[in-house]
Design a protein around this nucleic acid. Structure first.
Length: 306
DNA sequence: TCTGGGGTCCTAGGACCC
DNA sequence: TCTGGGGTCCTAGGACCC
C-alpha cells in the first residue's frame, strides 16, 4: 500500500483520500536526506512496488503542496521553493485555488478577477465585505498562506451516508421504502463499525427532473440501531414524498455523530437497550463472516421483487 | 461532464430561551 | 403586556472536493 511506503519517510502522514496524502517531512532530512531526494525516492518506490505513477507537490504548507501536486499531475514532481510562493501563484488561474469551484470561479471572473495575482491585489476588507468567510479564506490562499497542520491520526467522521441512483425512476412508495431500508442498514452498519451513534437523520430525494430535496430530524438520544434509524427515515420519506414526480435517487445520511449513545448531561440508562445491542452485534458478526447481504431485514429485500 | 457516491463546510431563517 | 437583543439549536439547501 502507498501509505506504508509514505510512513517509512515520516511518522506524520495524513490520508486525504484513497490515493492522496500529506506527508510532513519537517526534520526528516537527517534521516532521509534532502526533501527533494526523499520525494524522488518515494516516487520510485511507488512505481516499483505498485506500478503506479505518483504526482508529488513539495512546499512549505498543505495548501501549496496540494496546488503544486495538482499542477504537475499526472506523473510529475514540483517543488515550490521558499520565497517563490507568490511568484508561482500569481499567473495561475483562480480555479487552481482549492475552494474555488465552477460557481465561485465564474463569480470572480465576472468581477474581472482571473488570476491568483488579481485576487492577491484585493484588500482583505473588500473580500470580507463581498464574500464573508469565503472571502477571508481567499485572501490567505491567494498569498499561499495556510496554517492547517498535517494530522497524524484519522479523526472520527462528521457524517456517514448511503445513497443510490435507482436503475429506473420510481414512484412506488413500497419500493422506495425498501431501498431506504437497505441503505439504512448499510449506513447504520458503518456507524457501528466506527463505534459511533447518530443524533440527526437526513433523508434525500432527487426527482426525475433533478430537483433535489432533503428533510432531517434530530433525535433526543443518539443511536446506531437500524430499526430506530429506519423508523425516522421512513417517517421523513412519507413527509417528503409528496410530489407525483418519479424519484431517481434516494439517500440517507447520519450527522451529529457521537461516541456515546446518550447525551453527555443525561445520566439515564437506556433501559431495554441491551437486547438490541446483542442483536446488532450478532448481525454485524455474521456479516463480517459471510458478507453484508448474508443477513438483511425483510423490508430491505422487497426491492428485488421490483 | 446531461449529471455517481461519499464526504466537508457554510449560510440563513426560525424556534426557543434568557 | 409589550419590547429588545443575544445565544444556541434545528433545519434546508448549496458549493466544493476526491
Amino acid at each position: 500500500k502507498v501509505f506504508e511506503i509514505l510512513k517509512r519517510y515520516s511518522p506524520l502522514v495524513e490520508p486525504m483520500s484513497l490515493d492522496e496524502a500529506f506527508v510532513d517531512l519537517t526534520g526528516c532530512e537527517r534521516l532521509h536526506g534532502p526533501v527533494l531526494k526523499s520525494a524522488e525516492k518515494i516516487r520510485n518506490e511507488i512505481l516499483e512496488a505498485l506500478g503506479l505513477n505518483a504526482s508529488i507537490g513539495i512546499a512549505s504548507n498543505k495548501l501549496l503542496a496540494k496546488i503544486a501536486s495538482a499542477y504537475c499531475k499526472p506523473n510529475g514532481m514540483l517543488w515550490i521553493a521558499p520565497g517563490m510562493e507568490q511568484r508561482f501563484l500569481a499567473p495561475l488561474p483562480i480555479q487552481r485555488i482549492p475552494g474555488i469551484g465552477p460557481k465561485g470561479g465564474a463569480e470572480l471572473r465576472r468581477m474581472g478577477i482571473k488570476s491568483v495575482g488579481d485576487l492577491a491585489r484585493l484588500p482583505l476588507e473588500l473580500l470580507e465585505e463581498a464574500y464573508g468567510k469565503w472571502g477571508v479564506s481567499l485572501y490567505s490562499k491567494a498569498r499561499g498562506i495556510s496554517d492547517s497542520p498535517v494530522i497524524g491520526e484519522v479523526e472520527d467522521p462528521r457524517s456517514i451516508s448511503r445513497e443510490t441512483t435507482l436503475e429506473m425512476d420510481s414512484a412506488d412508495p413500497l419500493f422506495l421504502e425498501s431501498t431506504l431500508s437497505y441503505l439504512t442498514e448499510k449506513a447504520a452498519g458503518q456507524l457501528r463499525e466506527n463505534k459511533l451513534f447518530a443524533r440527526t437523520v437526513t433523508l434525500k430525494l432527487r426527482y426525475s427532473d433533478f430537483k433535489t430535496v432533503t428533510r432531517s430530524k434530530t433525535l433526543e438520544m443518539p443511536t446506531a440501531e437500524d430499526h430506530t434509524l429506519f423508523k425516522i427515515g421512513a417517517g421523513l420519506l412519507r413527509k417528503l414524498f409528496t410530489r407525483r414526480v418519479r424519484v431517481r435517487l434516494i439517500g440517507i445520511a447520519f450527522t451529529s455523530l457521537t461516541a456515546t449513545p446518550y447525551r453527555q448531561e443525561g445520566l439515564f440508562d437506556s433501559k431495554g437497550g441491551q437486547c438490541w445491542d446483542d442483536l446488532y452485534q450478532g448481525i454485524d458478526r455474521i456479516r463480517h463472516k459471510y458478507g453484508f447481504r448474508s443477513i438483511l431485514r425483510a423490508r430491505s429485500n422487497q426491492r428485488d421483487a421490483n
